[in-house]
């Protein structure tokens, strides 16, 4: 016997994150949300990081010096931070491409058309073109991430 949530809400774990026994769009929904939060938090960190590095470009009297920039870049230039950047590339590319799918679906494109009901009641929206578009966009975001890997690790770190 354990105490129970009488409101019986599924909550964040079962509602937002647990997509694996659900449909494909639910998977994309969870990923869209996670990547959105991730890229959003990275953006705030990036604004802070660039504002720190921008002091390198101030006049010498105001404390500006290329050394600040070079030091920061050599601090960030390792496998740990570049793996983080690669994840940001994957997340932002996926979020952007899936966002296009969502805009199209929300404007009534690629979600099929309404049909009179007849057994076995195959729903239009989750059988429409957006389902295949979603799969294509996931594939495309992985392909672009491979290019990101090439730039960040092979050119950036000289692997």
């Amino acid at each position: 016997m354990k105490s129970v949530n009488t409101k019986n809400n599924a909550g964040i774990y079962r509602g937002w994150l647990k997509f694996w026994n659900r449909n494909w769009e639910r998977w994309l929904y969870t990923m869209h949300r996670i990547t959105g939060i991730g890229v959003g938090l990275y953006f705030i960190a990036h604004i802070w990081e660039t504002s720190y590095s921008a002091t390198a470009f101030l006049d010498v009297e105001s404390g500006g010096s290329p050394i600040i920039w070079t030091n920061l870049m050599s601090f960030l230039s390792n496998e740990f931070f570049h793996t983080g950047l690669l994840l940001v590339v994957l997340a932002s590319v996926f979020h952007a491409l899936n966002g296009i799918r969502l805009i199209l679906a929300e404007q009534g494109i690629l979600i099929g058309r309404v049909k009179p009901p007849s057994f076995p009641y195959i729903p239009a929206s989750i059988r429409g073109g957006q389902r295949y578009l979603g799969a294509g966009l996931v594939a495309l975001s992985f392909i672009l991430t491979v290019y990101g890997f090439y730039q960040l690790f092979i050119i950036g770190l000289g692997w």
Partner: peptide, 28 residues
């Protein structure tokens, strides 16, 4: 956010996800 689970579980094929996306189209 168009997770589509409503349509996925609907036993009558009502397709709520489609209806809500149509409402968004009308709202825009």
């Amino acid at each position: 956010h168009f997770a589509g689970s409503c349509t996925d579980v609907c036993p009558k094929g009502v397709d709520p996800a489609f209806a809500i996306q149509q409402l968004k189209t009308l709202a825009i």
